[in-house]
């Protein structure tokens, strides 16, 4: 019973990470740093909530989330690919922009600085261990499928082969007639769509949008991308690991065994350990963060 409860909660916490980390993997494998994941999630959550509110349909809400995430991602892609801006600076700017814009429109549309009215969503009242709620939430299934889809796309399709080539040696890809910028735009747009679905999951689970509701999950997903060495399945396992740590922290909260801040550090601490090369060497895509020279 305890174990089932623990696993159910871990999965529920992991779903937004799975979406966003899948997006992080495709973006970074194409050579663009996934620093904007946090912004895509927040933007996706907001656009999803707005679309869901006005249409009264959660599925149309999802469509709205994807549109919002893709638009933010394209803004990032255009500034970094076409105008060759520094990806770290633009990524941070995208996150700040998403934070400001969602607050602005929250006030404009719903006259609130904190949250939206109740929206149609997928969250179901939790009973027992929570597995029923999981089975009834389509976004959980889509989140798990996203990981499988990403692994298939990256390793089994011509597009995936091109993404891997473009992130590793763009000049080589160009020399065989691949349109490098186009592959990158597609990869970043896909990462925006996926991260936005993760954001929508948060809003739909609570049946409302709350200001800053992504709460750093995009960065944890980026940490999982790196900890998973840019592989969709390993990144998903990292998401589950981080989510399990979070669940543990929530369940131990009453016991006060360790301060919760230490548990919150786990994803970042593990990422630093991974980057330092303690558990096998994490070698990022060679062209990550570099657009110049094309």
């Amino acid at each position: 019973m305890i174990v089932l409860l623990f696993l159910a909660q871990t999965l529920r916490i992991a779903i937004p990470y799975l979406f966003a980390a899948s997006g992080g993997v495709i973006s970074e494998r194409a050579g663009l740093i996934g620093l904007g994941l946090e912004g895509y999630m927040l933007g996706g959550a907001f656009c999803g909530a707005v679309a869901s509110y006005y249409t009264g349909n959660a599925w149309l809400g999802l469509l709205g989330a994807v549109v919002g995430g893709v638009l933010l991602a394209l803004l990032y892609a255009v500034t970094s690919i076409r105008f060759r801006g520094d990806q770290v600076v633009i990524g941070i700017a995208i996150n700040l922009f998403a934070s400001g814009a969602t607050r602005f429109f929250l006030r404009l549309l719903f006259h609130s600085s904190a949250n939206s009215p109740r929206i149609p969503g997928f969250g179901v009242e939790q009973t027992g261990t929570g597995w029923l709620a999981i089975a009834r939430n389509p976004l959980i299934w889509i989140g798990i499928l996203a990981v499988a889809f990403m692994a298939w796309l990256l390793y089994r399709t011509p597009f995936g082969l091109r993404v891997r080539a473009v992130g590793e040696h763009p000049a080589a890809a160009m020399s065989v007639g691949i349109r490098v910028a186009r592959v990158r735009y597609l990869a970043v747009a896909l990462s925006g769509a996926l991260a936005a679905l993760g954001g929508a999951y948060l809003a739909f689970d609570q049946h409302q949008f709350t200001a800053e509701m992504s709460a750093g999950r995009g960065f944890i997903a980026l940490a999982a991308t790196i900890f998973g060495r840019w592989d969709p399945v390993r990144a998903a396992l990292a998401c589950l690991l981080f989510a399990a740590a979070e669940t543990l922290q929530i369940q131990l909260q009453g016991a006060q065994v360790i301060p919760s801040q230490f548990v919150e550090m786990i994803p970042y601490a593990l990422t630093i350990v991974a980057l330092a090369g303690v558990v096998g060497r994490a070698v990022p895509p060679a062209a990550l963060g570099k657009v110049e020279g094309l």
Partner: peptide, 10 residues
């Protein structure tokens, strides 16, 4: 090309 146009990870 003089500098190989090969993707080392593939």
């Amino acid at each position: 090309h003089q500098h190989f146009m090969l993707v080392p990870t593939l």
